[in-house]
Nucleic acid binder design. Structure first.
Lengths: 207, 207
DNA sequence: TTAATTAAAGCGAGCGCTCACTCATTTTAC
DNA sequence: GTAAAATGAGTGAGCGCTCGCTTTAATTAA
Protein backbone atom coordinates (compact mmCIF):
# COMPACT_ATOMS: atom_id res chain seq x y z
CA UNK A 1 0.00 0.00 0.00
CA UNK A 2 2.19 2.82 -1.17
CA UNK A 3 1.56 6.57 -0.94
CA UNK A 4 -0.67 5.96 1.96
CA UNK A 5 -2.36 8.47 4.29
CA UNK A 6 -0.61 9.56 7.51
CA UNK A 7 -3.62 8.09 9.29
CA UNK A 8 -2.86 4.70 7.88
CA UNK A 9 0.78 4.95 8.95
CA UNK A 10 -0.28 5.78 12.47
CA UNK A 11 -2.60 2.79 12.49
CA UNK A 12 0.22 0.51 11.39
CA UNK A 13 2.43 1.89 14.15
CA UNK A 14 -0.27 1.19 16.69
CA UNK A 15 -0.73 -2.34 15.37
CA UNK A 16 2.98 -2.98 15.85
CA UNK A 17 2.92 -1.47 19.33
CA UNK A 18 -0.05 -3.63 20.32
CA UNK A 19 1.69 -6.73 19.04
CA UNK A 20 4.89 -5.74 20.83
CA UNK A 21 3.12 -5.23 24.15
CA UNK A 22 1.45 -8.59 23.92
CA UNK A 23 4.76 -10.31 23.13
CA UNK A 24 6.62 -8.42 25.87
CA UNK A 25 3.97 -9.47 28.37
CA UNK A 26 4.37 -13.08 27.41
CA UNK A 27 8.16 -13.37 27.37
CA UNK A 28 9.64 -10.19 28.79
CA UNK A 29 11.65 -7.77 26.71
CA UNK A 30 14.90 -9.64 26.22
CA UNK A 31 13.31 -12.96 25.31
CA UNK A 32 10.89 -11.32 22.90
CA UNK A 33 12.35 -11.42 19.39
CA UNK A 34 11.68 -9.00 16.60
CA UNK A 35 10.43 -11.99 14.64
CA UNK A 36 7.86 -12.61 17.37
CA UNK A 37 6.58 -9.07 17.17
CA UNK A 38 6.46 -9.16 13.39
CA UNK A 39 4.56 -12.44 13.38
CA UNK A 40 2.05 -11.23 15.94
CA UNK A 41 1.44 -7.99 14.09
CA UNK A 42 0.93 -9.80 10.79
CA UNK A 43 3.76 -7.87 9.17
CA UNK A 44 7.23 -8.86 8.08
CA UNK A 45 10.39 -7.97 9.95
CA UNK A 46 11.38 -5.63 7.17
CA UNK A 47 8.10 -3.74 7.30
CA UNK A 48 8.45 -3.41 11.04
CA UNK A 49 11.82 -1.73 10.66
CA UNK A 50 10.21 0.82 8.39
CA UNK A 51 8.28 2.13 11.38
CA UNK A 52 10.75 1.73 14.23
CA UNK A 53 14.55 2.04 14.00
CA UNK A 54 15.29 -0.49 16.77
CA UNK A 55 13.61 -2.97 19.07
CA UNK A 56 14.48 -0.72 22.01
CA UNK A 57 12.67 2.16 20.33
CA UNK A 58 9.47 0.12 20.24
CA UNK A 59 9.68 -0.29 24.00
CA UNK A 60 10.31 3.42 24.54
CA UNK A 61 7.40 4.49 22.35
CA UNK A 62 5.15 2.05 24.18
CA UNK A 63 6.24 3.55 27.51
CA UNK A 64 5.59 7.08 26.34
CA UNK A 65 2.13 6.20 25.08
CA UNK A 66 1.17 4.25 28.19
CA UNK A 67 2.44 6.58 30.87
CA UNK A 68 3.18 9.92 29.25
CA UNK A 69 -0.31 11.31 29.51
CA UNK A 70 -1.08 9.91 32.97
CA UNK A 71 -0.63 13.14 34.97
CA UNK A 72 -2.68 15.10 32.48
CA UNK A 73 -5.46 12.50 32.56
CA UNK A 74 -5.50 12.39 36.36
CA UNK A 75 -5.71 16.16 36.42
CA UNK A 76 -8.60 16.23 33.98
CA UNK A 77 -10.55 13.53 35.82
CA UNK A 78 -10.16 15.10 39.25
CA UNK A 79 -10.16 18.85 38.61
CA UNK A 80 -13.76 19.30 39.72
CA UNK A 81 -13.29 17.53 43.05
CA UNK A 82 -13.19 19.91 46.00
CA UNK A 83 -10.69 19.31 48.78
CA UNK A 84 -7.17 17.97 48.59
CA UNK A 85 -7.89 14.68 50.32
CA UNK A 86 -10.83 13.62 48.12
CA UNK A 87 -8.78 14.57 45.08
CA UNK A 88 -5.70 12.67 46.24
CA UNK A 89 -7.80 9.67 47.14
CA UNK A 90 -9.48 9.71 43.76
CA UNK A 91 -6.14 9.97 41.96
CA UNK A 92 -4.81 6.93 43.77
CA UNK A 93 -7.99 5.01 43.12
CA UNK A 94 -7.94 5.87 39.44
CA UNK A 95 -4.27 5.03 39.07
CA UNK A 96 -4.45 1.73 40.91
CA UNK A 97 -7.72 0.79 39.26
CA UNK A 98 -6.17 1.49 35.88
CA UNK A 99 -3.14 -0.68 36.63
CA UNK A 100 -5.01 -3.58 38.19
CA UNK A 101 -8.48 -3.65 36.69
CA UNK A 102 -9.07 -1.54 33.62
CA UNK A 103 -5.73 -2.10 31.94
CA UNK A 104 -4.02 -4.88 33.87
CA UNK A 105 -1.79 -5.53 30.89
CA UNK A 106 -0.42 -2.02 31.25
CA UNK A 107 0.41 -2.73 34.88
CA UNK A 108 2.27 -5.86 33.90
CA UNK A 109 3.93 -4.06 31.03
CA UNK A 110 5.31 -1.42 33.38
CA UNK A 111 6.89 -4.15 35.44
CA UNK A 112 8.50 -5.60 32.33
CA UNK A 113 9.75 -2.10 31.55
CA UNK A 114 11.27 -1.79 35.02
CA UNK A 115 12.98 -5.11 34.52
CA UNK A 116 14.51 -3.80 31.34
CA UNK A 117 15.31 -0.41 32.88
CA UNK A 118 17.72 -2.14 35.20
CA UNK A 119 20.03 -3.01 32.34
CA UNK A 120 19.16 -0.42 29.70
CA UNK A 121 19.98 3.23 30.31
CA UNK A 122 17.61 4.58 27.71
CA UNK A 123 14.62 2.70 29.07
CA UNK A 124 15.62 3.68 32.59
CA UNK A 125 15.74 7.37 31.73
CA UNK A 126 12.37 7.12 30.02
CA UNK A 127 10.71 5.43 32.97
CA UNK A 128 12.26 7.77 35.51
CA UNK A 129 11.06 10.80 33.62
CA UNK A 130 7.50 9.54 33.31
CA UNK A 131 7.33 8.57 36.96
CA UNK A 132 8.83 11.85 38.14
CA UNK A 133 5.98 13.70 36.44
CA UNK A 134 3.51 11.52 38.27
CA UNK A 135 5.19 12.00 41.63
CA UNK A 136 5.33 15.75 41.07
CA UNK A 137 1.63 15.87 40.34
CA UNK A 138 0.66 13.92 43.47
CA UNK A 139 3.03 16.04 45.54
CA UNK A 140 1.38 19.19 44.23
CA UNK A 141 -2.00 17.98 45.52
CA UNK A 142 -0.52 17.29 48.94
CA UNK A 143 1.08 20.73 48.96
CA UNK A 144 -2.26 22.32 48.19
CA UNK A 145 -3.80 20.40 51.06
CA UNK A 146 -1.13 21.65 53.43
CA UNK A 147 -1.56 25.24 52.23
CA UNK A 148 -5.31 24.99 52.74
CA UNK A 149 -4.85 23.72 56.30
CA UNK A 150 -6.43 20.43 55.36
CA UNK A 151 -3.28 18.38 55.92
CA UNK A 152 -0.73 18.31 58.71
CA UNK A 153 1.78 21.10 58.07
CA UNK A 154 4.87 18.96 58.60
CA UNK A 155 4.09 16.44 55.84
CA UNK A 156 6.84 16.22 53.24
CA UNK A 157 4.85 16.04 50.08
CA UNK A 158 7.55 14.72 47.77
CA UNK A 159 8.53 11.97 50.18
CA UNK A 160 4.94 10.83 50.54
CA UNK A 161 4.22 11.00 46.84
CA UNK A 162 7.31 8.92 46.07
CA UNK A 163 6.29 6.39 48.68
CA UNK A 164 2.84 6.10 47.20
CA UNK A 165 4.06 5.51 43.70
CA UNK A 166 6.77 3.18 44.98
CA UNK A 167 4.22 1.20 46.91
CA UNK A 168 1.91 0.97 43.92
CA UNK A 169 4.79 -0.36 41.88
CA UNK A 170 6.00 -2.79 44.49
CA UNK A 171 2.55 -4.23 44.91
CA UNK A 172 2.00 -4.38 41.16
CA UNK A 173 5.30 -6.24 40.98
CA UNK A 174 4.15 -9.00 43.33
CA UNK A 175 0.78 -9.15 41.78
CA UNK A 176 2.06 -9.26 38.22
CA UNK A 177 4.31 -12.20 38.98
CA UNK A 178 1.26 -14.11 40.08
CA UNK A 179 1.93 -14.24 43.79
CA UNK A 180 -1.12 -16.11 45.06
CA UNK A 181 -3.56 -14.90 47.67
CA UNK A 182 -3.04 -11.18 47.25
CA UNK A 183 -6.05 -9.08 48.17
CA UNK A 184 -5.52 -5.95 46.10
CA UNK A 185 -8.73 -4.33 47.23
CA UNK A 186 -7.83 -4.72 50.90
CA UNK A 187 -4.41 -3.27 50.18
CA UNK A 188 -5.84 -0.23 48.47
CA UNK A 189 -8.30 0.29 51.29
CA UNK A 190 -5.66 -0.07 53.97
CA UNK A 191 -3.26 2.22 52.14
CA UNK A 192 -5.83 4.97 51.84
CA UNK A 193 -6.76 4.68 55.47
CA UNK A 194 -3.16 4.79 56.60
CA UNK A 195 -2.52 7.78 54.39
CA UNK A 196 -5.57 9.63 55.65
CA UNK A 197 -4.66 8.94 59.26
CA UNK A 198 -1.25 10.35 58.59
CA UNK A 199 -2.13 13.42 56.54
CA UNK A 200 -5.21 14.51 58.46
CA UNK A 201 -4.86 13.66 62.15
CA UNK A 202 -7.93 13.72 64.37
CA UNK A 203 -7.47 17.31 65.43
CA UNK A 204 -7.83 18.52 61.87
CA UNK A 205 -10.24 15.86 60.70
CA UNK A 206 -12.84 16.65 63.30
CA UNK A 207 -13.10 20.32 62.49
CA UNK B 1 43.93 -29.11 42.57
CA UNK B 2 42.44 -32.56 42.56
CA UNK B 3 41.09 -34.57 45.49
CA UNK B 4 40.45 -31.39 47.33
CA UNK B 5 38.63 -30.88 50.64
CA UNK B 6 34.87 -30.15 50.67
CA UNK B 7 35.79 -26.88 52.34
CA UNK B 8 37.80 -25.86 49.34
CA UNK B 9 34.95 -26.73 47.01
CA UNK B 10 32.61 -24.55 49.04
CA UNK B 11 35.09 -21.70 48.85
CA UNK B 12 35.27 -22.02 45.07
CA UNK B 13 31.49 -21.94 44.90
CA UNK B 14 31.41 -18.78 46.96
CA UNK B 15 34.09 -17.18 44.78
CA UNK B 16 31.96 -17.85 41.72
CA UNK B 17 28.82 -16.51 43.44
CA UNK B 18 30.63 -13.33 44.46
CA UNK B 19 31.88 -12.82 40.94
CA UNK B 20 28.41 -13.50 39.54
CA UNK B 21 26.75 -10.98 41.84
CA UNK B 22 29.21 -8.31 40.91
CA UNK B 23 28.69 -8.96 37.20
CA UNK B 24 24.90 -9.12 37.56
CA UNK B 25 24.95 -5.78 39.36
CA UNK B 26 26.94 -4.21 36.58
CA UNK B 27 24.99 -5.48 33.57
CA UNK B 28 21.83 -7.19 34.78
CA UNK B 29 21.26 -10.91 34.40
CA UNK B 30 20.61 -11.25 30.68
CA UNK B 31 23.49 -9.08 29.57
CA UNK B 32 25.92 -10.79 31.94
CA UNK B 33 27.72 -13.56 30.09
CA UNK B 34 29.13 -16.74 31.56
CA UNK B 35 32.48 -15.58 30.20
CA UNK B 36 32.16 -12.40 32.27
CA UNK B 37 31.54 -14.37 35.44
CA UNK B 38 34.40 -16.75 34.72
CA UNK B 39 36.79 -13.89 34.05
CA UNK B 40 35.79 -12.02 37.20
CA UNK B 41 36.14 -15.15 39.34
CA UNK B 42 39.57 -15.91 37.92
CA UNK B 43 38.43 -19.33 36.71
CA UNK B 44 37.75 -20.74 33.29
CA UNK B 45 34.29 -21.26 31.86
CA UNK B 46 34.75 -25.01 32.06
CA UNK B 47 35.69 -24.91 35.73
CA UNK B 48 32.61 -22.84 36.45
CA UNK B 49 30.40 -25.48 34.91
CA UNK B 50 31.86 -28.03 37.30
CA UNK B 51 30.19 -26.14 40.17
CA UNK B 52 26.94 -24.95 38.60
CA UNK B 53 24.93 -26.75 35.92
CA UNK B 54 23.50 -23.57 34.33
CA UNK B 55 23.77 -19.81 34.47
CA UNK B 56 20.25 -19.69 35.85
CA UNK B 57 21.29 -21.96 38.69
CA UNK B 58 23.94 -19.47 39.75
CA UNK B 59 21.25 -16.82 40.09
CA UNK B 60 19.00 -19.13 42.10
CA UNK B 61 21.76 -20.14 44.50
CA UNK B 62 22.65 -16.50 44.98
CA UNK B 63 19.01 -15.71 45.78
CA UNK B 64 18.78 -18.52 48.29
CA UNK B 65 21.96 -17.44 50.06
CA UNK B 66 21.01 -13.76 50.15
CA UNK B 67 17.40 -14.02 51.19
CA UNK B 68 16.84 -17.54 52.46
CA UNK B 69 18.02 -16.89 55.97
CA UNK B 70 16.45 -13.43 56.34
CA UNK B 71 13.44 -14.42 58.46
CA UNK B 72 15.62 -16.50 60.74
CA UNK B 73 18.12 -13.65 61.14
CA UNK B 74 15.39 -11.12 61.85
CA UNK B 75 13.95 -13.44 64.44
CA UNK B 76 17.30 -13.91 66.14
CA UNK B 77 18.08 -10.18 66.20
CA UNK B 78 14.71 -9.18 67.63
CA UNK B 79 13.68 -12.03 69.88
CA UNK B 80 14.65 -10.19 73.07
CA UNK B 81 12.62 -7.08 72.25
CA UNK B 82 9.44 -6.78 74.28
CA UNK B 83 6.25 -5.61 72.60
CA UNK B 84 5.03 -6.25 69.08
CA UNK B 85 5.43 -2.69 67.86
CA UNK B 86 9.07 -2.24 68.93
CA UNK B 87 9.86 -5.62 67.41
CA UNK B 88 8.08 -4.85 64.15
CA UNK B 89 9.74 -1.47 63.97
CA UNK B 90 13.14 -3.01 64.55
CA UNK B 91 12.55 -5.65 61.88
CA UNK B 92 11.71 -3.01 59.31
CA UNK B 93 14.68 -0.92 60.31
CA UNK B 94 17.03 -3.88 60.10
CA UNK B 95 15.65 -5.01 56.78
CA UNK B 96 15.71 -1.59 55.16
CA UNK B 97 19.07 -0.76 56.64
CA UNK B 98 20.45 -4.01 55.28
CA UNK B 99 19.11 -3.30 51.80
CA UNK B 100 20.14 0.33 51.63
CA UNK B 101 23.16 0.78 53.86
CA UNK B 102 24.91 -2.36 55.06
CA UNK B 103 24.56 -4.41 51.89
CA UNK B 104 23.33 -2.02 49.21
CA UNK B 105 24.59 -4.42 46.57
CA UNK B 106 22.15 -7.00 47.88
CA UNK B 107 19.32 -4.51 47.52
CA UNK B 108 20.30 -3.83 43.95
CA UNK B 109 20.78 -7.53 43.33
CA UNK B 110 17.24 -8.27 44.43
CA UNK B 111 15.96 -5.77 41.91
CA UNK B 112 17.96 -7.47 39.18
CA UNK B 113 16.45 -10.75 40.34
CA UNK B 114 12.94 -9.30 40.08
CA UNK B 115 13.73 -8.11 36.59
CA UNK B 116 14.69 -11.64 35.68
CA UNK B 117 11.77 -13.18 37.58
CA UNK B 118 9.43 -11.47 35.14
CA UNK B 119 10.65 -13.64 32.29
CA UNK B 120 12.03 -16.72 34.04
CA UNK B 121 9.65 -19.04 35.87
CA UNK B 122 12.31 -20.69 37.99
CA UNK B 123 13.68 -17.42 39.29
CA UNK B 124 10.15 -16.17 39.88
CA UNK B 125 9.22 -19.18 41.97
CA UNK B 126 12.43 -18.82 43.97
CA UNK B 127 11.84 -15.15 44.71
CA UNK B 128 8.19 -15.65 45.56
CA UNK B 129 9.03 -18.39 48.02
CA UNK B 130 11.70 -16.36 49.78
CA UNK B 131 9.48 -13.30 50.02
CA UNK B 132 6.48 -15.27 51.24
CA UNK B 133 8.55 -16.45 54.19
CA UNK B 134 9.42 -12.88 55.00
CA UNK B 135 5.83 -11.68 54.73
CA UNK B 136 4.68 -14.55 56.92
CA UNK B 137 7.17 -13.65 59.57
CA UNK B 138 6.18 -9.98 59.67
CA UNK B 139 2.52 -10.97 59.68
CA UNK B 140 3.13 -13.22 62.67
CA UNK B 141 4.49 -10.28 64.65
CA UNK B 142 1.43 -8.21 63.79
CA UNK B 143 -0.82 -11.09 64.83
CA UNK B 144 0.94 -11.29 68.17
CA UNK B 145 0.40 -7.57 68.64
CA UNK B 146 -3.30 -7.95 67.94
CA UNK B 147 -3.60 -10.90 70.30
CA UNK B 148 -1.85 -8.91 73.03
CA UNK B 149 -4.24 -5.99 72.58
CA UNK B 150 -1.38 -3.80 71.45
CA UNK B 151 -2.69 -3.34 67.91
CA UNK B 152 -6.11 -2.53 66.54
CA UNK B 153 -8.11 -5.77 66.34
CA UNK B 154 -9.32 -5.26 62.78
CA UNK B 155 -5.88 -5.04 61.20
CA UNK B 156 -5.33 -7.66 58.51
CA UNK B 157 -1.83 -8.78 59.25
CA UNK B 158 -1.06 -10.45 55.95
CA UNK B 159 -2.29 -7.49 53.92
CA UNK B 160 -0.16 -5.09 55.93
CA UNK B 161 2.91 -7.29 55.84
CA UNK B 162 2.62 -7.65 52.05
CA UNK B 163 2.26 -3.90 51.72
CA UNK B 164 5.34 -3.29 53.80
CA UNK B 165 7.51 -5.65 51.81
CA UNK B 166 6.03 -4.37 48.57
CA UNK B 167 6.77 -0.83 49.56
CA UNK B 168 10.33 -1.67 50.54
CA UNK B 169 10.81 -3.26 47.15
CA UNK B 170 9.17 -0.48 45.19
CA UNK B 171 11.30 2.11 46.91
CA UNK B 172 14.44 0.03 46.48
CA UNK B 173 13.52 -0.19 42.80
CA UNK B 174 13.50 3.59 42.35
CA UNK B 175 16.55 4.05 44.44
CA UNK B 176 18.52 1.31 42.71
CA UNK B 177 17.89 2.83 39.31
CA UNK B 178 19.47 6.01 40.55
CA UNK B 179 16.39 8.21 40.71
CA UNK B 180 17.84 11.45 42.02
CA UNK B 181 16.77 13.32 45.13
CA UNK B 182 15.32 10.41 47.07
CA UNK B 183 15.46 10.80 50.82
CA UNK B 184 15.48 7.21 52.03
CA UNK B 185 15.73 8.15 55.68
CA UNK B 186 12.69 10.42 55.49
CA UNK B 187 10.77 7.66 53.76
CA UNK B 188 11.62 5.11 56.41
CA UNK B 189 10.65 7.55 59.12
CA UNK B 190 7.37 8.47 57.49
CA UNK B 191 6.52 4.84 56.82
CA UNK B 192 7.06 3.85 60.41
CA UNK B 193 4.98 6.75 61.63
CA UNK B 194 2.13 5.96 59.27
CA UNK B 195 2.24 2.33 60.26
CA UNK B 196 2.22 3.13 63.94
CA UNK B 197 -0.68 5.54 63.56
CA UNK B 198 -2.58 2.82 61.81
CA UNK B 199 -1.80 -0.15 64.03
CA UNK B 200 -2.00 1.58 67.38
CA UNK B 201 -4.57 4.38 67.30
CA UNK B 202 -4.52 6.96 70.04
CA UNK B 203 -7.01 5.14 72.24
CA UNK B 204 -4.67 2.18 72.55
CA UNK B 205 -1.43 4.10 72.40
CA UNK B 206 -2.24 6.30 75.39
CA UNK B 207 -2.92 3.46 77.76
C1' DT C 1 -12.16 3.82 -19.09
C1' DT C 2 -8.14 1.64 -19.38
C1' DA C 3 -3.23 0.99 -19.55
C1' DA C 4 1.37 2.50 -18.18
C1' DT C 5 4.23 4.53 -14.75
C1' DT C 6 5.91 5.42 -10.36
C1' DA C 7 7.27 5.38 -5.69
C1' DA C 8 6.36 3.78 -1.43
C1' DA C 9 5.15 -0.49 1.34
C1' DG C 10 6.12 -4.96 2.26
C1' DC C 11 8.85 -9.10 2.18
C1' DG C 12 12.07 -12.67 4.19
C1' DA C 13 16.41 -15.14 3.36
C1' DG C 14 20.60 -14.22 5.00
C1' DC C 15 24.59 -11.75 7.39
C1' DG C 16 27.43 -11.06 11.12
C1' DC C 17 27.73 -11.71 15.62
C1' DT C 18 26.93 -13.30 20.50
C1' DC C 19 26.42 -16.55 23.88
C1' DA C 20 25.52 -20.73 26.84
C1' DC C 21 27.51 -24.75 27.07
C1' DT C 22 30.95 -28.97 25.79
C1' DC C 23 34.94 -31.85 25.60
C1' DA C 24 39.61 -33.35 24.43
C1' DT C 25 43.59 -32.09 26.62
C1' DT C 26 46.64 -30.42 30.25
C1' DT C 27 47.74 -29.45 35.00
C1' DT C 28 47.80 -30.33 39.81
C1' DA C 29 47.54 -32.21 44.65
C1' DC C 30 48.01 -36.09 46.99
C1' DG D 1 51.09 -42.58 39.39
C1' DT D 2 46.48 -41.21 39.36
C1' DA D 3 42.18 -39.21 39.60
C1' DA D 4 40.12 -35.03 40.06
C1' DA D 5 40.27 -30.15 38.61
C1' DA D 6 40.97 -26.78 35.30
C1' DT D 7 41.46 -25.14 30.62
C1' DG D 8 39.66 -22.57 26.51
C1' DA D 9 38.96 -23.29 21.64
C1' DG D 10 35.13 -24.92 19.56
C1' DT D 11 29.97 -25.69 18.55
C1' DG D 12 25.63 -24.66 17.08
C1' DA D 13 21.59 -22.28 17.99
C1' DG D 14 19.54 -17.84 18.06
C1' DC D 15 19.15 -12.96 17.40
C1' DG D 16 18.87 -7.98 15.66
C1' DC D 17 18.99 -5.98 11.66
C1' DT D 18 19.77 -5.33 6.27
C1' DC D 19 18.94 -5.21 1.50
C1' DG D 20 17.66 -6.63 -3.05
C1' DC D 21 13.48 -7.82 -4.74
C1' DT D 22 8.22 -7.95 -5.30
C1' DT D 23 3.68 -6.07 -4.71
C1' DT D 24 0.45 -2.48 -4.51
C1' DA D 25 -2.21 1.87 -4.79
C1' DA D 26 -2.20 6.26 -6.54
C1' DT D 27 -1.19 9.05 -10.55
C1' DT D 28 -0.74 10.00 -15.25
C1' DA D 29 -1.21 9.16 -20.23
C1' DA D 30 -3.74 7.55 -23.94
Amino acid sequence: MPKVTPDHKEQRKQTILDAAQSVFLGKGYQLATVDDIAARSGLSVGALYRYFPTKSDIMLTLLERKLGRAPEILQRLTQDIAGAWPRLQRCIEIFVHALHVRHPSTGRFLIVAWGEAIQDNTVRKGLQGRYAELVDYLASIIDEGIAAGEFLPGAESWVIASMLVGMADGITLYWSTGTPGMDLRAMRFTTLQMLRNYLTPLAIREE
